[in-house]
Design a protein around this nucleic acid. Sequence first.
DNA 1: CGTTTTAGGTAAAACGTTTTACCTACACCA
DNA 2: TGGTGTAGGTAAAACGTTTTACCTAAAACG
Lengths: 338, 338
Amino acid sequence: MKKPRPEVSIREVASLVGVSTATVSNALRGKGHVSQATTARIVAAVDKLGYVPNVAASQLRQGYSKVFGVAVMNIANPFFSEIVLGVEEVAEVTDYSVVVGNSYNSAKREANYLSLFERHRYDGVLLAPTLDELPNLDGFARRGTPVVLIDHVDPTGGHICVSVDDLLGGRLAAEHLLAGGARHVAFVGDPQRLPQMRGRCQGCADAVTGIGARFTVIETPPLTVRTGREAGHHLSGLPLVDRPDAVLCGNDEGALGLMQALIADNVSIPDEIALVGYDDIDFASTAIVPLTSLRQPSHQMGVRAAELLLGSIAGEAGLESVRFQPELVVRRSTRSYV
Amino acid sequence: MKKPRPEVSIREVASLVGVSTATVSNALRGKGHVSQATTARIVAAVDKLGYVPNVAASQLRQGYSKVFGVAVMNIANPFFSEIVLGVEEVAEVTDYSVVVGNSYNSAKREANYLSLFERHRYDGVLLAPTLDELPNLDGFARRGTPVVLIDHVDPTGGHICVSVDDLLGGRLAAEHLLAGGARHVAFVGDPQRLPQMRGRCQGCADAVTGIGARFTVIETPPLTVRTGREAGHHLSGLPLVDRPDAVLCGNDEGALGLMQALIADNVSIPDEIALVGYDDIDFASTAIVPLTSLRQPSHQMGVRAAELLLGSIAGEAGLESVRFQPELVVRRSTRSYV
DNA sequence: CGTTTTAGGTAAAACGTTTTACCTACACCA
DNA sequence: TGGTGTAGGTAAAACGTTTTACCTAAAACG
């Protein structure tokens, strides 16, 4: 497999203009001393020949790529896509490029992307880990490539992290529900596998049991519209004495599915069961019963993560992990509670 | 800005094992003649040193990158994320890597990503163009880099395309509505800017006017939950004589917003206004009134596009554009029409 | 037995950039 | 006048791979 066509390289430009390749390189990047006249002739030649610099070569020589990689577990999730948008925003003004890898909840895909980033020697890596354990980041550490973790806390403190306080989120939801009179709160989600869910569940549990109310967990791995719906049918089928009067769902998709099932089964929201979702996706406000939810500052998280990464690339010291706070957005699904 | 640490290169591996770099290269890629014993010692050394090949260097030498780039307008849209998933599936088995660029509906961002792909000399490009006109693909053409367009038809036939028949989609929806007794059909969306919307609108218009029924277009640039909602309020405020009895929305988000507004305004769906969406996203089936929608074979489109691209990279001739057909999924929002 | 193949390996060139170390000519300054 | 910058430029080395063109020894072949 040979190269199909010879590249139009900096050499062609140089010889067309009648200067050395060094001069072309300098002119195009505004370094060194190149006269206005020569520069003009060079850009003309570049245009004419359609020369596009080969980053493989320049990266090889320079030792850095001006690219950073972002690996997230599910870009279709608005939480992550909003983060990526924030990242790209700061990348743009610092003229870095962003390459995003989407692991679709698969640890293997995640590993593939990290390996891609490593082989390509990107200058920095943003990672929202799929599962609890961190993937192997040794290669980056050894090579001194900065890594910032998103939506994850590193217990060892070895990495800079940008996260949201899930405990607080769970607590806010629980306190809101309890204030409205709830006596039996259920958490629906996947706390076994996902650390974020675990935090939300724990925060909720603490607040609920702290006040002496009843707390139940309904495991739905993974939490989707479908499994949320199943959980809803399960709830409505429960004998009244065992049926929770309030539910916190680990994400909005699950909450919407659950809502649909409850309504189909003639369980009124919020009167019989009050419902809180998580993430405040667009559809939360457009649901049958507009959904109370916890909003995470995803855009801001992306911005901050990128800034930390850039700082780290620039060799700044003393960069600290940051933890954001979720915000409760009250809507009709708990409105009678206000 | 120097390289912070010296790379552990193939040379270190070679000298640790006591062979030449050529032998290491051959061993790691299974080419040439390398004895079992030496190979074993080489992989041991690779492990020990944590050697990771530098693709910038290998790409420079080999002239190809084993990567292709995908630029889509909005990866948060399930239609596109499903396409990308299909692409990654075929990439994986052919051991190509996929880099996706998300233009977030911005032509400028799209151009940035295409430029990134070009500078990085990726082996192929999949592009779902943001707007009607194609961005500048000259660089790829000149360099002989294959390009396959997704969800777009190239009138000049100069590019291979993988698209869906939007005219048919519009027609299917219209025929379904007319068969149910609709006499005045409105299309809600953004046909001015988006070619896909234009096709859906046109197909709908043809079928509706063809039968002598009334047809209206309501422009909502862009079509989102919010603008759909506004369109809904607009409709319900119309004097009955001017109010459509059936609506085709250019996407499901808009349809769901519109649905919410109609219900808030006490317009019954489907009795007073029947509603059809487009894309069949997850939320279509979980809506207040489950939404009739048109499903596009997005996953399959991604697979096919990737296969065509690989074929093109391999130099196969006679590759043909392919056009898929949408499928009408009937639910309650038009159920009385069945 | 002599000849060819093959297994196993090497040194050095090549890929397209950027950078270093150097040059020349001219302006400026004392 | 001589010295010092400096503007404008160059040739060649360097980055880390892969590939080409070789080499030697042993095996296979007639």
